[in-house]
Amino acid sequence: MSDFNTTSFTNPSTFILLGIPGLEAAHVWISIPFCTMCISAILGNFSILFIVKTEPSLHGPMYYFLCMLDVTDLVLYTSTMPKMLAIFWFNSREIDFIACLTQMYFILISSVLESGILVAMALDRYVAICHPLRHSTILTNPLVAKIGLAVVLRGIMVTLPFPILVRQWPYCRTNVIPEPYCTHIALVNLACADTRVSSYYGLFVLFFVMGLDGIFIAVSYTQILRAIFILPTKDARLKTLGTCGSHLFVILAFYIPGLIMSLMHRFSQNMPLHFHVLIGNMYHLMPPMLNPIIYGVRTKQIRDRLLRLFTHKGA
């Protein structure tokens, strides 16, 4: 492996993914929780898609956006997990340059899409609680389709410059990536060129795209909470707040790991590299596993449909 660290080149045809640096001897054991997460995420997200498709009462804006979230999560897992498990199980560390860029792009677009979908879901909850009598007339199926298309197009356009910039850089230091998949920051660190444009653009996406999404969600829930607290009875307030519970948990599962990652990069430079890599993996891979669990447990319609499905099979 030392040959990869000392070779000079300009445009490598392949990169070498180290997996979890410093914990190579434990890769087989580390693969067990990751494989469990993968199976749980795939089964959970496909179950939600199947239930929404087959249950007419779930054919509404919130569940359409939930299906978009599930598809986004499945794209993230299918673009990262197979290579990760190949590294852990078979020590298959090489990845083609174009495949590496493609993997990086899908990781980036998944984050931007999920952020946009959470905004769309916040809009749905705002209309449902603050304007309940007009919900069906405001969020019509054509408008929901347009919102979904806008979220997808925004994700594609916002993340497209990243692989275009990365592909233009020369790589003359090393082709070793100390992670189990290709990330933008890893490729930035490997390039022997001025990468300030890419770094500035990354900050722009972080603050002016995903940051604004967070602000919009916060404003929406401020209005939602105001509407809830003026309801006449405690039961009415709790029942109305319960309709937002799943979405709130999903928001927390998306933003809190991101906040932890930002704080780690800023204040924990002395932490071992493998700890940073493991936390980064949790940031990317934990929400897609948690989302179907959260909606399955907290959404009565989905929970009841799941129970009927398994009861019918058991009978």
Results as ranks from 00 to 15, higher is better:
72 T>A: 13
48 I>T: 09
60 G>I: 10
57 S>M: 08
75 V>C: 05
72 T>C: 15
36 T>D: 03
48 I>R: 00
62 M>Y: 11
63 Y>Q: 12
64 Y>T: 04
68 M>A: 13
38 C>D: 06
50 F>D: 10
36 T>G: 11
60 G>K: 15
65 F>K: 04
56 P>W: 15
49 L>W: 01
72 T>E: 06
43 L>Q: 10
37 M>P: 01
40 S>M: 09
71 V>M: 12
73 D>Q: 13
59 H>A: 11
51 I>D: 04
44 G>L: 02
42 I>D: 03
49 L>K: 03
51 I>F: 07
36 T>R: 06
69 L>F: 06
47 S>R: 08
47 S>A: 11
47 S>C: 09
56 P>V: 12
41 A>T: 10
52 V>Q: 04
50 F>P: 00
68 M>S: 12
61 P>C: 07
36 T>L: 14
67 C>M: 10
45 N>S: 09
47 S>W: 02
66 L>N: 03
76 L>N: 09
45 N>Q: 10
45 N>F: 02
63 Y>I: 03
62 M>W: 02
36 T>N: 06
78 T>N: 09
35 C>V: 08
77 Y>R: 02
36 T>E: 03
55 E>K: 11
43 L>F: 09
69 L>V: 13
36 T>H: 06
37 M>E: 03
48 I>F: 01
69 L>S: 10
45 N>T: 04
73 D>K: 00
68 M>T: 08
67 C>H: 05
69 L>Q: 08
35 C>G: 11
74 L>E: 07
59 H>R: 14
55 E>C: 09
42 I>W: 02
52 V>I: 15
45 N>G: 03
41 A>M: 06
39 I>W: 06
56 P>R: 13
45 N>V: 06
59 H>V: 07
62 M>G: 05
56 P>I: 12
36 T>K: 11
78 T>L: 14
71 V>Q: 05
55 E>P: 02
66 L>Q: 10
45 N>I: 04
42 I>N: 01
54 T>M: 13
54 T>W: 02
53 K>Q: 12
42 I>F: 04
68 M>R: 07
46 F>H: 09
72 T>N: 15
77 Y>G: 02
78 T>I: 13
59 H>C: 08
74 L>A: 08
61 P>N: 11
58 L>H: 07
77 Y>N: 00
73 D>T: 10
55 E>R: 09
53 K>D: 10
55 E>Q: 14
36 T>A: 14
70 D>N: 15
36 T>V: 12
75 V>D: 00
62 M>A: 13
51 I>E: 01
70 D>W: 01
71 V>C: 13
37 M>N: 07
41 A>D: 01
44 G>V: 03
